[in-house]
Design a protein around this nucleic acid. Structure first.
Lengths: 221, 221
DNA sequence: CGCTGTATTGATGCAAGTCAAGGTAAGTGG
DNA sequence: CCACTTACCTTGACTTGCATCAATACAGCG
């Protein structure tokens, strides 16, 4: 069980990863960096999500703490031996990676074909969906209408493939149009869910059905 | 063993997939479509690649023939039973999906952080790398300098998250600048590989090391 | 031949990036 | 308690990369 402060690197891009594990609290970002410094976040890991690369010394992605985090860590080789001994466990890992692949492809659609406002709306809806599953102890009225964005504008931009300025403008605009309300930079209320869905460019189906929001994720970082 | 003509749908987005298999010849595109018709290709499958979704009735992606194709098909449930009986085979599938996840994330970086000219250059380099592995019978001099783009401009645009017009302009421009030469709309020569790599915005490392080009892929479509 | 689908080229407009300047809030030290 | 810093977010003015719209070129083919 280890803790990291926001901003710390858990696994570097080229580094040999010696451990892997599960997020207990906080948020991890899985990201790739280009030679000139441009960064793209390719996954966010919430509590209960798995991080780390099995069966490979290194993956091309870095895993960093987006907030203060506590992780439950295992030694990689020991975990791999466990997997070899337990086909059932490996099967479950397999299914998780398949889901993660779906999520990655969903995100490719977002990055390749959606406008920035659509991406922001999608992000809100996905976050809303995931976090309401994770925190089921809130009063249901409140829960249905509020979104907590657990990361900075900078990370949001790196995740959505845009810039902080554009993110800011889009959010303010959605608020001005009465689609959402801004309680604080990280807390929002959804005033018009129907319209938010329409803004996202997605159908009820692909948001509600199978997407990033559905299950705990594998990082395989 | 089945054949499909270019443009035919092998597996639709919402359809129950009853079979899966391996590409023998031709190219498959794995794609997602939005409500308003925008499409994003999330993967290309070359000969020897695997397509189809295991352990899931349907995935959110469609698999279509980008060219005339011949496929070696298996009945899905039979294949899944085979996997359950053979942990070793399932392990290999697992590794393949992990590689595919890496490739998807690589593509997320491309779609989220690279300019269109960079994407085109990256695509050329990746294609060059993959196809020279697949066709090792060419004279090595010729092989090192030529690229065959096996898909239409339309598919290229859908893969790179842009439009046919922009693709066309970028290619003509690279040719005018002496980086590549155009033999036919689908055949190109690489005149200045160093410069092409620089255009791609990637380092030698991430193109040569681990990326889309490395291994046969899983479609899991 | 004209027809059809695919690729190129040109002109124009807009979405979003860039650059630069505030604004706000939390933390620090005198 | 108040200046000062630092980090983050917002806002404005300007620029530009790329999409869009529209036209032309270039096959292959009935």
């Amino acid at each position: 069980m280890r803790t990291f402060e926001a901003g710390n690197t858990i696994l570097a891009e080229a580094e040999d990863s010696v451990f892997l594990g599960i997020v207990m609290s906080g948020i991890l970002r899985v990201q790739r960096t280009m030679a000139d410094g441009r960064q793209q976040i390719v996954g966010l890991l919430l509590p209960a999500d798995f991080f780390g690369r099995v069966f490979e010394r290194t993956s091309g992605v870095a895993v960093e703490a987006a907030t203060d985090v506590t992780l439950c860590c295992f030694e990689r080789h020991a975990f791999e031996r466990l997997l070899s001994r337990s086909p059932e466990l490996e099967h479950q890992m397999f299914l998780a990676v398949l889901r993660e692949l779906d999520a990655a492809r969903d995100w490719m659609l977002l990055l390749g074909s959606q406008t920035i406002p659509e991406r922001v709306a999608s992000f809100f809806l996905i976050l809303h969906r995931r976090t309401t599953v994770i925190e089921p102890d809130m009063p249901s009225r409140k829960r249905r209408l509020s979104v907590h964005v657990p990361i900075s504008r900078h990370d949001m931009a790196a995740y959505l493939g845009t810039t902080v300025e554009t993110i800011s403008r889009v959010i303010q605009d959605m608020s001005r149009r009465g689609i959402i309300e801004i309680h604080s930079p990280q807390h929002f209320g959804i005033l018009d869910e129907k319209r938010l869905v329409r803004c996202s460019g997605r159908e009820e189906l692909s948001i509600g059905h199978r997407c990033l929001a559905d299950e705990p994720h594998m990082a395989v970082g």
